[in-house]
Amino acid sequence: MASKPSHFTLEISKLNFVLKVLKHYKFSEARWFEFGLNLGLLHPTLKAIESANKGDPSNCLMECLAKWLTEGSNHTLVWQTLANALNEMNLISISTDIRKIMADPVSEILQCYIGGLAQVVLTEESVDLLYTEGLISKDTLTKVKSCGCSLVGDPMLLILSAVAEDHSKF
């Protein structure tokens, strides 16, 4: 019998998920350096990332997050740390949404299974049933269908949001 995760933690295997979350909230990749500083990375580390990636903000952000995820000290409060870093950059709405949705305990339970859920492809009838039962919104229904009834990317984030707002949808 497989053991159940007790708490969602972010580590390097979740890098792509963190990038998708930031993209979903329209975080500007160009601000990666300041973001890295607010995450607690050292200036020389960030300069090395910048130099190695020829100033490509997308790669720089990815490398910055990879460094943080592999060397960060407290991976059980990662969403809080990420939200704090965004807050320091005056990105209050993104920070608030991440605290409310990603750091929500019920949302974190679903995140423990994000790898498996990302591989799920639902039938159109199942997606319609989720909407009919009030478990997903019309917007989520449309997005899930537009992704071929897959839970990858925005549909998964919309589901996490719905669960965070109403735990009975879990």
Rank of each mutant, 00 (worst) to 15 (best):
E165M: 09
K145S: 10
I94G: 01
I136N: 06
N16L: 09
S13Q: 12
A164D: 08
S3V: 10
N87Y: 02
N90M: 03
I114E: 15
E165H: 13
T96G: 04
P5Y: 01
G40C: 06
T76A: 06
V106K: 13
Q111L: 15
T76L: 07
E50Q: 15
V106D: 02
G55T: 08
T9M: 03
L151Q: 07
E29L: 02
V152N: 12
V163S: 04
L157K: 10
V18K: 08
E71C: 04
V163K: 11
T70L: 08
S93G: 01
A2T: 13
P57S: 14
E88H: 13
A103T: 10
A162P: 02
D56R: 10
S107M: 02
I92W: 01
L91F: 04
H167W: 01
G40A: 03
Q119H: 09
W68A: 09
N90A: 05
S146G: 02
N53C: 07
D97A: 13
G153Y: 09
V152M: 10
N59A: 12
C112L: 03
F27I: 07
N74Y: 03
L122Q: 03
L65T: 10
P105W: 06
I12E: 11
A66T: 11
H7P: 03
N38A: 09
L41C: 01
V106L: 04
S168W: 02
L117A: 02
K145T: 14
L157S: 05
K4E: 11
G153W: 06
D128E: 15
P44T: 07
N53P: 03
R31V: 01
S126G: 06
K47W: 01
K100T: 14
A162R: 13
K20T: 12
E71Q: 13
Q111S: 13
S13E: 15
I101N: 09
A2V: 13
K54C: 00
N90Y: 04
A162H: 11
G55M: 10
F27Y: 04
L160M: 09
A83D: 01
L39W: 00
A162W: 00
I159R: 11
I94A: 14
D166H: 07
L46Q: 08
F35C: 05
S168I: 06
L15T: 05
N90V: 03
K26D: 13
T45Y: 00
S126Q: 15
C147S: 14
L91Y: 08
V18I: 12
M89R: 03
I109S: 02
L158P: 09
V127K: 01
A52P: 00
A162N: 08
S107E: 02
L69W: 02
L129Y: 06
I101V: 15
L65G: 10
L61I: 04
L22H: 10
V163T: 12
S146Q: 11
A164T: 11
T132C: 05
K169A: 05
E133T: 08
S6T: 14
A52Y: 00
A48R: 15
K169V: 04
C60R: 10
S168P: 02
M1F: 03
F170H: 12
A162T: 09
Y131R: 15
W32S: 12
A118F: 07
E124T: 15
F33M: 11
L37D: 00
S150Q: 09
N74A: 05
G116A: 10
L65R: 09
S28H: 11
E125I: 07
